[in-house]
Design a protein around this nucleic acid. Sequence first.
RNA 1: GGCCCAUUCGUCUAGUGGCCUAGGACACCGCCCUCUCACGGCGGCGGCACGGGUUCGAAUCCCGUAUGGGCCUCCA
Length: 418
Amino acid sequence: MTVRVRMAPSPTGFLHIGGVHTFLFNWLYARGRGGECLLRIENTDTSREVTEAVDQIQRSLAWIGIDWDRPVTFQLDAMERCRELAAKLVADGAAYEDEGAIRFRMPDDGSTGWDDAVRGRIEVPNAQLEDVVIVRSDGRATYNFASPVEDMDDGITHVIRGEDHISNTPKQIQILRALGHEPPVYAHLGSILGPDGKKLSKRHGAVSVDEFRAAGYLSEALVNFLALIGWAPDGETTEMTVAEIVERFTLEAVSSSPGTFDYAKLDWLNGRYLRALTPDAYADRLLVFLHEQSIGWDKERVRAAAPLVQEKIGRFEEFPGMVGFLFGFVDPDVTLLDPAILAAAGKAFDPVEPWVAAGIEVALKALCEELGRKPKEVFLPIRVAVTGSRISPGLYESLELLGKDTSLARIRAHAAAS
RNA sequence: GGCCCAUUCGUCUAGUGGCCUAGGACACCGCCCUCUCACGGCGGCGGCACGGGUUCGAAUCCCGUAUGGGCCUCCA
C-alpha cells in the first residue's frame, strides 16, 4: 500500500511553527517511503477565514522546503459530497436531524480504540462520545465530518497530527465505520510548548514562518531543528541534511511527550549552518535576505563585508548592526575614545600603503610598541572611533574595507590636536 | 467535573529488564585561543516526578499519587 498523508492547515492566519512541525513530520514520513503528501485547506469555518492566509501558507511551506503532490484542495469544495453522505447516514439511521442540523449517533456502550502509531493503544469509552453535529443547520459540514470524509475520498493512509486531535479520533473512527470505510493509521504528535510550558505563542518570540525568515534563519537549519523536537535518529546526531532526516525518519522513533521550543538551541544550530556555508553561498543567501528586508546596500560591498562576520553572527538579522559602519555614519560614545591614542594612530596610519589588512596590522603593532601599551588598550578607542561600537569585526579587515580616507577621517575627528 | 494523553539533567533527547557509576547536544560556569565580539578546543555543573509492587536484577513492566497538557463548540 502506498503511503499517502495530508497537511491540513486552516486558513485563519500565518503559518504557525507548530503547524510546520506537524506538516514536516507528515512530509518526512511520505518522502521517506515514496509516498504522497497532499495539501488540503480546511476552510469549512468561513467566518474565521483570512483572505491572504492560503497564499501565505503556501509561500511559507515553499520557503521551508516542504512540497506537496497534486493540486491544493479546499474542504469547502467537499460540502456537496458531505451532504450526500450525511443524508445516507440519516437514511441508515446512523444520523438524525436536530434543529436543522444533522447529528451523528454515537454508540452508548463499549469503547472505541485504535493503535496509535506513536502512542500505542488508545481506548475511549463510547459513553464519552456525544452525538456530534456533522452538518450545520446552514448546510455546511463540520470539521469532524468533512475531515474523515476527505481522508476517505483522498485515500489517506496515515493521519499524522497534533495531540489536540486525540479526542476527535474515536468520533472520526465511528463516522468512517458507519460509512463503511476502514480508518487510516493515526499518529498523534506531542505539542510544541513555550519556555514556560504553555502552548508556544507570540509572547515567547517568533512563531510564524515569516518571522523566522525575517529574523535571518536558514530554512534548512529550521527544518533540522524542528525535526529534533519529538524525534531523534539516535542519541548523538544533531546536525543532519534534509535528505538524511528523510532517510532516517520513522514514526516508531517519534516521542509522544510535548517538547519545548528552545530558541537558544535554534540560534546555535543556525550559526552552525551559517558558518558551514562557502563564502560565496553565504554572500548569496545574505543578499537575498537583505533584499527581502528592503535593505538596498551596495551588493559588492556586502559581499566584501560578509566574510568579516560569517563567524560572528548566528542570524542574518544581526548583519546590519555589525557592519552598519561600512554603509553609513557612526556616532561613537566619546567616553570610550582616547584622543591621544587616536592622534598617534592617525600618524601611524598615514604612511601605510597599500591600505590592506596586513600593512595595517604591522602599523598597529608598531604603534602599540611605540606607546608601550597593550594591543587591546590601543585597539579599543580606534575600534570605537571607526566602527562606532566596542564590538565589531576584526579591526584590520574593517579598516581596510572602510578605506583609508574614511578611516583616517573618523580617527582624526576625535584625535587630540597636535 | 468527565474522558484521554504525557512525565530521563534548566531545554531537546539516547535508553525498550542486566552493556547505566544513565550517554550526547543546547544553555550555564571555568580554562585555553584572542584586537572586541564571536568561533574553536578542553573541563565542570546537572536528571530517571513521587510511592508501592513484579523480578535474582527496573529509567525500562504493573498499580496508585502528584504535576502538566488536550478535548468535552452548529471551531479546526
